Simulated scan of single mutants.
Amino acid sequence: MKIATWNVNSLRARADRVEAFLERQDIDALAIQETKCKDENFPWELFERAGYEVAHNGFSQWNGVAIASRVGLEDVQRGFEGQPHFGKGGKDPHEEARAIGATVGTESTDGAAPVRLWSLYVPNGRGLQDEHMVYKLDWLSTLKDLTAAQLAESPDLRLALTGDWNIAPQDEDVWDMQFFLDNELTHVSEPERSAFRSFTDAGLVDVVRPRHPGPGVYTYWDYKALRFPKKEGMRIDFQLCSPALAESVEDAWIDRDERKGKGASDHAPVIVDYR
C-alpha cells in the first residue's frame, strides 16, 4: 500500500498536477494539506474520476486538509480530541481545519493491514514571540499526548501521522542554519524541535530519513528568492509511523520532480510504500 503526503498549496489551482501525480506514482492513499477551499468548492470530481474516495476538512480559503483513498476510507474524523483553537488579538478562539484522520486499506488487494492515517497541517508559528507560536506548541502537545495514549493502549496499531509539520527538526534540514538563527526565524527553535522530538520519544518513527539522509534533502522550497533553483530548501514534511507500521516499510522517497515546472506547489510529496 503506497501512501503519500503532499501540501499542495491550493488544490483547485493544482488539480491537474494532483491527478497526474496519483496516476504516475500509483498512489493508494494521499494525505493532502492546504486545500484552501470549503466543501462546496472542493474538486470532488477530480478524485471520483480517478477512482478515489475522499474526505475533506475545510472551513474557508485558508488551511484545509483531506485524505483520498482507492483502498477504502472509513471512520473519518475531522480534527482530533481536544484540538486547540486559535484566537488572535483577544478574539474568540476558533477551530482551524488542520487535521483529518481516516482508516485506509480496508479494501487493499495486496494483503496489507489497514492503516489509521492522519493528514496534518501543523500551525506555522509565525514568529518566535507570536501568540501563534504558543498555539502551535499547544496544538502539538495535545496531539502528542493523544498519540502516546493510543500507542500505550494499542501497541500493534498501524498509525501514520503525515503532513506538513512546519518544523525542521535537525540543522541539516535547512539550507543555512546560521541564516535562520541570525534572522530569528521559526521552524528551527528549540521549543519547536522539542515538540517534534516528543513524538519520536513516544515511539513514532520517521521512516523516510534513514533511507534519504541529509543534508540537502528537502521537501519545501519557498517561491521567494528563487529558493528551488538555488537548492535552498527545508525538510518539514514527514510520515511519522507507529512501530507496527514502520516495520512494514518497503521503500520511501521524496518526489522532488513534483516541485519542478509550471504551477508547482512549494512542497514536494513524501511517499512511503508499506507491505
Rank of each mutant, 00 (worst) to 15 (best):
H187K: 11
H94L: 14
R259A: 15
Y135H: 15
Y218D: 06
R158W: 02
G72F: 01
W221L: 07
I100Y: 07
V249A: 06
D75M: 12
P243A: 08
E23M: 13
E190V: 14
I3C: 06
T219L: 01
R259F: 10
I167L: 07
L204G: 00
D273F: 03
G163Y: 05
P123T: 07
R49Q: 12
L226C: 09
E95H: 10
V134F: 08
L117N: 02
G233V: 01
V71G: 00
C241K: 00
F180M: 15
E53Y: 00
N9F: 11
R275T: 12
G125C: 00
D26I: 10
S194Q: 14
R126G: 00
R227D: 02
D255K: 11
K38M: 12
Q239V: 11
V54D: 00
R193T: 02
Q77F: 02
F80H: 08
D92K: 15
K88P: 13
E40H: 14
T219E: 00
R14L: 09
R70Y: 05
K224G: 10
R70G: 03
I254C: 07
D39N: 10
V71C: 04
A152P: 02
T162F: 01
I3T: 02
F199L: 11
L140M: 15
D171E: 15
S154F: 06
Q77L: 14
I100W: 08
A29E: 06
